Simulated assay, not measured.
Amino acid sequence: MIGKQVKKAVSKQLKLIKLVFNYAKYFTLKQPKQKLIVVCFDGLFPHGGLVDRLKGIVSFYQVAQELGYDFKVLFDNPFDLTMVLEPNQVDWQINRDQLKWHPTKSKFLYLVNNFNTNPLQIIKQSKAQTFYVYANIDYAKTMFPNLSTLQLESKWRTSFNTLFKKSNLLETKLNQIELAPYIAFHSRFTSLMGDFVDTTTKVLSEEEKTMLLKQLLNCIEKVKAENNLPAYVFSDSVNFIDYIKQHSIIKTVKGNPFHMDNFEGNSNIEGHLKTLIDFFMISKSQKVYFLNIKPMYNSSFSKYAAIIGNTKFIRLES
């Protein structure tokens, strides 16, 4: 236990040192003109996938709204976010040459995977004027405990739509796909199928893969028959998508799944664009079914897509 605490403390100090070295080039003694929160995705630290990043952005936009702070997003790694999502009603875009680091008026907040905190209270109680934030959690339930689940989802959807609109590139790609009513299936395998690099390492045996694929196909076909609508399947596994294409008439969207946290140093915009296309395709479906049959992994990707689209989300578990 003590060893774990020491390791955590050392990790925290190393991250702080990394931040100080990175922001030293933005040093200034000029007083900030206004209170500012900047949520950063600059390649210094892993954040997770698309939805994890959106959670961090929306959470701190809500903090900025509550406390009257100006709000910006620095998102230029592994690609420039504005290529797919542009500012809508809030001018959140900021470039690195606009950053300023004051030794007493600026503060770092590293909250990646930190579930046990309330950022609203942290910023409210701080004397700093500018906050550089690294975060990937939806803190709405913590910050607004009196709101119901439906109210929290509505607030999240409103915040997202206030911040973002689809770029012409993303809109064009989405418009090229059939828009007739459909249902959506989503699954997350990470490394289980042996075709995806992620933070997990477990790979199923060939026999286990075959059994799971057959079980998933049966589940999909049953639900599809009950709905009597065309269906799309979305997944992080190319092997799963190929299997579905070979054994059913379920539709898929062209392109290979790709993780936004850049595990292989790949900043190819086409791969990341596919992630956004999947996200908004799921959001526009009539119903969203998340397949979570053991030993598959949980994911909030399709859940937040359903929130954006205000569509019904159903979890299929075993």
Rank of each mutant, 00 (worst) to 15 (best):
5 Q>E: 13
7 K>L: 14
7 K>A: 15
8 K>S: 15
13 Q>D: 11
15 K>P: 03
20 V>T: 08
25 K>P: 01
26 Y>C: 01
27 F>I: 08
39 V>L: 03
41 F>N: 11
43 G>I: 04
47 H>N: 06
54 L>V: 06
55 K>N: 12
57 I>L: 00
61 Y>P: 01
63 V>Q: 07
66 E>D: 05
66 E>G: 00
69 Y>A: 01
71 F>R: 00
74 L>T: 03
75 F>V: 01
76 D>M: 00
78 P>F: 03
79 F>P: 03
84 V>K: 07
87 P>K: 09
90 V>A: 04
93 Q>A: 11
99 L>S: 06
99 L>T: 04
102 H>D: 08
103 P>E: 02
106 S>N: 02
106 S>F: 02
107 K>V: 02
108 F>M: 08
108 F>S: 08
111 L>A: 08
111 L>V: 01
114 N>A: 09
115 F>R: 07
116 N>E: 15
129 Q>Y: 12
133 V>N: 00
137 I>K: 04
138 D>M: 00
141 K>R: 07
144 F>K: 07
145 P>F: 04
145 P>A: 02
147 L>R: 08
150 L>K: 14
150 L>E: 15
150 L>R: 11
153 E>Q: 14
154 S>F: 12
155 K>R: 10
155 K>H: 08
156 W>D: 00
157 R>M: 05
158 T>G: 00
158 T>D: 05
159 S>E: 03
161 N>I: 03
161 N>A: 05
162 T>I: 10
164 F>A: 03
165 K>F: 09
165 K>Y: 09
170 L>G: 02
172 T>E: 15
174 L>I: 04
175 N>T: 07
176 Q>N: 13
176 Q>D: 13
188 R>P: 10
189 F>A: 13
191 S>E: 14
193 M>V: 08
194 G>E: 14
196 F>S: 15
202 K>V: 13
205 S>N: 12
205 S>E: 13
207 E>C: 00
208 E>W: 05
210 T>L: 15
213 L>F: 14
213 L>P: 06
214 K>Y: 10
220 I>P: 07
221 E>A: 12
221 E>Y: 06
223 V>K: 11
230 P>R: 05
233 V>N: 14
236 D>V: 05
237 S>M: 04
240 F>W: 11
243 Y>G: 07
243 Y>V: 05
244 I>H: 07
245 K>W: 10
246 Q>A: 11
247 H>N: 15
252 T>W: 05
260 M>H: 01
261 D>T: 08
261 D>Q: 08
266 N>R: 04
276 L>P: 00
279 F>R: 00
282 I>F: 04
284 K>F: 07
285 S>D: 10
290 F>G: 07
290 F>C: 06
297 Y>I: 12
298 N>Y: 10
303 K>I: 13
303 K>F: 15
304 Y>T: 05
311 T>I: 15
312 K>F: 13
316 L>P: 06
318 S>L: 12
